[in-house]
Write a protein that binds this DNA or RNA. Structure first.
Length: 416
RNA sequence: GCGGGUGUAGCUCAGUUGGUUAGAGCGCGGGUUUGUGGUACCUGAGGUCGCCGGUUCGAAGCCGGUCACUCGCCCCA
């Protein structure tokens, strides 16, 4: 039995769970489509450079959470840990820069070698949207609005909170970084070990440390929003103004930062407190530098990604694959005939299951268990009289019918 | 990668200070005069007590290791 297990952090998706995933994805696709974001699909693995360059060599995703391997022609490949890099790569590769703005949506599996927890897997699915080619902060507002509508459609807007911040442009960020390091250096002895390491690698990330003594120090740290240059300030102003006009509630969180190098200006996340430590359910921001990092022309972009598993955990299940009608014969000899009734029934858009084995009693028990609404019964009597017997399993009534009448009765009763 | 908790039938769990053939409920199979279900009753199958090793006359229960799940850290969707 043990040999049958899946790889750690990689799960089977049984029908009930997969159904919820699909619900979430369908909702996302529908709303994105209405915002005129077109679905795109990129490969599950790419040359590792595609992810390494933009994510930054110091990010954990690249250094310790990657699935990197060499193929038979000795190319270094990487299972994608996120979707944005691939989408931007595809955008550049197809020469779509001639046709901006471009709006894309995507979903699919991502891979990160992390310690599994609830809502965190090594193979997991993300749905995301990218708006490429607009540096206008209206695009940021649009994308957040799309995320909000998505959560609204899932019925999760009330159980999530939107946090936003601005990381500014690279000039502002570098400037802020200088002052932040200066401030933190005064407290170097009190910082956690993790944060001391980050001080040289990626000091902004210290801002979202959960360590208690770190938090006390961060409380009085310089605020990035005070260090934005005028252009960055104006952009952020438009974003918050836009959200206000749209009535989208948000909290500005000056400590909201991004682990990935390519982010700038707007950063945001929708979080819930119903998933423990994995509260981030939809997160994104602006990534104007990404295209250039990949070796393309400077092309702005903004987008977000949402975790399908995490959202699915919050959404109620409506799984139901119950047949509208079951077909059963008095004995095995009627099974071929039963199959021949499939066609008219499925053409009428009904869900049909045939019960092949067991006694009559067994078949009805089975019909009951799978919650069938009707049973069509075929036996010697029916064949002799050239009819079918239709039993309504909800009311218990039976009537002789032909197949066309059966369809009508079933559809009328089920309101289909 | 680091720290805490957990691991007994398909599921939810009992299993007293280590002592003979490991239990319950639900679920599953068969049956209650064979062309009719949801109730009830009868009956059956299913566990090397996560795995490996150790202590012991004897381990599901103690010890060590390992794997998996889970919570937190890291990181992030």
């Amino acid at each position: 039995m043990d040999k049958l297990r899946t790889v750690r952090g990689v799960n089977d998706l049984l029908p009930e769970v997969l159904d919820k995933h699909n619900q979430v994805i369908e909702t996302a696709l529908k709303i994105s489509n209405q915002y005129c974001y077109s679905q795109i699909e990129t490969p599950i693995f790419e040359f590792s450079e595609i992810f390494k360059k933009p994510l930054g060599i110091s990010s954990d995703i690249v250094t310790k959470e990657n699935y990197i391997f060499k193929d038979r022609s000795n190319d270094e490949l990487m299972l994608r840990p996120e979707g944005t890099s691939g989408v931007v790569r595809a955008f550049l590769n197809a020469g779509l820069i001639q046709d901006v703005p471009k709006r894309f949506s995507y979903y699919g599996p991502m891979f990160r070698y992390e310690r599994p927890q609830k809502g965190r897997l090594r193979q997991f699915k993300q749905f995301g949207v990218e708006c490429i080619g607009l540096s206008n902060p209206m695009a940021d507002v649009e994308v957040i609005s799309l995320g909000k509508d998505f959560l609204l459609k899932l019925g999760l807007l009330n159980s999530t909170k939107l946090k936003i911040n601005s990381l500014g442009d690279s000039e502002s960020r570098l400037n802020y970084r200088k002052f932040l390091i200066e401030y933190l250096n005064d407290y170097k002895t009190e910082l956690s070990n993790d944060s001391i390491n980050r001080l040289s690698q990626n000091p902004l990330r210290i801002l979202d440390s959960k360590n208690e003594s770190d938090r006390k120090i961060i409380f009085n740290a310089p605020n990035i929003l005070d260090y934005l240059n005028q252009e960055s300030k104006d952009k952020f102003q438009i974003v918050t103004e836009g959200l206000d006009v749209l009535g989208i509630k948000y909290d500005i969180d000056k400590n909201l930062v991004r682990g990935l190098d390519y982010y700038c200006h707007t950063a945001f996340e929708f979080i819930t407190d119903e998933l423990g430590a994995q509260g981030t359910v939809l997160a994104g921001g602006r990534y104007d530098g990404l295209s250039k990092m990949l070796g393309g022309p400077d092309t702005p972009g903004v987008g977000w990604a949402a975790g399908i598993e995490r959202l699915s955990l919050l959404v109620p299940s409506h799984f139901n694959n119950n047949p509208d009608v079951v077909l059963l014969g008095v004995s095995d000899e009627f099974n071929f005939s039963l199959l021949s009734f499939m066609e008219p029934l499925i053409n009428a858009d009904l869900k049909v299951e045939i019960l092949y084995t067991g006694s009559m009693s067994k078949k009805f028990k089975r019909a009951n268990k799978i919650n069938a609404s009707f049973a069509i019964i075929l036996g010697e009597e029916e064949v002799k009289m050239k009819i079918l017997k239709l039993k309504n399993l909800i009311t218990g009534t039976e009537e002789p019918v032909n197949i066309r009448e059966a369809v009508n009765v079933i559809k009328t009763f089920l309101n289909k």
